[in-house]
Design a protein around this nucleic acid. Structure first.
Lengths: 339, 339
DNA sequence: AGGAAAAATGTTAGCGCTAACATGATAGAG
DNA sequence: CTCTATCATGTTAGCGCTAACATTTTTCCT
């Protein structure tokens, strides 16, 4: 394939290659008249920068390694959205990327984007990246203070959902959490508790159950919970998949959703649409997070000195038919006995 | 980041750079003794090839553009699996890639992998790729004979599923197709008809309905079908999402799955696990297809002359609880009246 | 052993770009 | 109107690698 090169542009504009290069990389350092001339020439010959040559001259590789741990299921569209965001930003800066499923398979690169891992994995990756003097940005919480990290605000998500339920008049709100020892599960629980606390509602440990993030596990846990405590009018689920199971459990028990039980989910990546009524959920802004991760990494690569970034991106509530005011809307009676 | 270069290896081995390069790219052209020497040196200095330099010297860009049309929903994990396959193969050959959502945003590259598009889009892409003298491989059927193309064998998928139902004793088998004017929907219908024909069962147009690929559309279509023709004992759905709707429709009508109605899906990418019983489905080998697309493109890039490839990859049946023998297993009575 | 073919290795040049330095143009101060 | 600061542009060299050709070594046939 023949592509126009800098040389072609330079000849077309009757000017040196270096000036053309500057028009592209540092337009301010070129006289406006010359710049226009060059820009016209670029259009004329249809010049596109050669990323490989640029990377080589910059002593870069032009590649970012994206680590998605093997235990993250690609059936889950989560990773896809993240990658879409990363891809969009990187490609606009002529970087390309590789998706790696395991730390064992290393590839030379200029920087790392790492999807949430366990603590020791984070440390291992950080050390490895550090030893190669490569910047690394992390998706998901990290125990280390010196690592850039962008995450979804999981606390905020369940907080907003629970607040919405409370605003609808619910007072007896249970939670079905994901049974994983990860920060995000603690955070989602924390958001739920925070909303209860703010509303002056008691936290009942018996109303919080956990299940592995599968529809049938959610079904079982929700059925047990609902059978044991018929009093709850709303159920905050820590994932849409669990919410699907919960809705089915309610139906099985003859409990109507949303008339007798409101159910909320979490994720908003497609699963919330797979039942009737559709799950009221909080959409994780995964695409945005992907974009931000890539942008942050590019900033680091350009050498801009900035403090370690710890950024949280808020989820967005997606209304759905699985939530309604409780049948006998309880008026605000803050006192409830603990079980 | 400092990486060892060919030069470092050459010095360590006391030999010329070119021989080292040959050990990597054409080991046959180096004397075994020298090769060993070099390989040891490569290990010693921890040499990793620089993809940018290699791409530049080869007059390549080292980048493959992957087009995933905007109308393909990334929530659908389909694209993710395809990309995972593509990524794994390309990265092992030091190629990286960009995901593009629209033909408007062009990026320089060495070749194209294009996910199924409408006919005019295929032609547009082919012309564009041709004009840049870039090879292009396509996922999905194509009307043009001169384009490499790898696809899932959709006919085979519903054929096998329907055959399995027939083997279980089903004779009254309906189909819920995806309402899209695409090759794959015609093919899935064709597979169903082929199995019926082979078994000597009549094709009843009234037993085939279509719905947009959403759970609630599938629900509606399946409910209408099941209500109208109580006689069917099995329903072949052209997607798992539709199957989810169909199972819910059956439950709503008081029809037990699988005791009174067997249901099959198609895709096997996660949605089939989201209900109880789990959907008996045909898993699209999307990851494999991704690998094959990338391998084929790399073959083209290496200049191997081969005929235009039209390859179909067979889906794999994934058993699930949504299928059982019909209650009153019909003995083989081939003659059935048409409605 | 002599010599031509074949195999193994080395040398040169250049892929397209940019950092670093060198030079030329412009402008403001004395 | 010279002299220096500043800006604008040009020149040189090299990033790491490999194609193409050049050279050396080996093979093995007569």
């Amino acid at each position: 394939m023949i592509l126009a090169t800098l040389k072609d542009v330079a000849q077309a504009a009757g000017i040196s290659m270096m000036t053309v290069s500057r028009v592209i990389n540092a337009p301010d350092r070129v006289k406006p008249a010359t710049r226009e001339l060059v820009e016209k020439a670029i259009q004329e010959v249809g010049y596109i920068q050669n990323p490989a040559a640029r990377a080589l001259a910059n002593k870069r590789l032009g590649v970012i390694d994206v680590y998605i741990p093997e235990h993250i299921d690609l059936s889950n569209s989560f990773a896809m959205h993240l990658i879409a965001g990363i891809s969009d930003v990187l490609s606009s800066y002529l970087y390309s990327f590789l998706i790696l499923r395991s730390r064992e398979v290393s590839h030379p690169c200029d920087g790392y984007i790492v999807m949430g891992l366990f603590k020791d994995e984070v440390d291992g990756m950080a050390e490895y990246a550090g030893s190669r003097n490569c910047p690394m940005v992390l998706f998901g919480h990290t125990p280390r203070k010196d690592i850039d990290c962008i995450d979804v605000d999981n606390v905020q998500g369940t907080y907003e959902l629970t607040r919405h339920l409370i605003a609808q008049g619910h007072r007896r709100i249970a939670m079905l959490n994901v049974a994983e020892e990860k920060d995000y599960t603690y955070d989602r629980l924390a958001g739920y508790r925070k909303a209860l606390r703010e509303a002056g509602l008691p936290f009942r440990p018996g109303w919080v159950v956990s299940a592995a993030n599968h529809e049938d596990k959610g079904f079982e846990a929700a059925r047990a919970l609902l059978a044991a405590s018929g009093e709850v009018t709303a159920l905050v689920c820590a994932s849409d998949v669990l919410a699907l199971g919960a809705v089915r459990a309610a139906k099985t028990l003859g409990i109507q959703v949303p008339q007798e039980l409101s159910v909320t989910g979490f994720d908003g990546l497609g699963y919330h649409l797979l039942t009737e009524p559709k799950i009221f959920t909080a959409r994780q802004p995964v695409y945005d997070v992907g974009c931000q991760l890539a942008s942050l990494l590019l900033q680091r690569l350009s050498g801009e000195a900035l403090d370690t970034v710890k950024r949280l991106v808020s989820p967005e509530l997606i209304p759905g038919g699985s939530v309604a005011a409780p049948r006998a809307a309880v008026t605000i009676s803050q006192k409830e006995e603990l079980p």
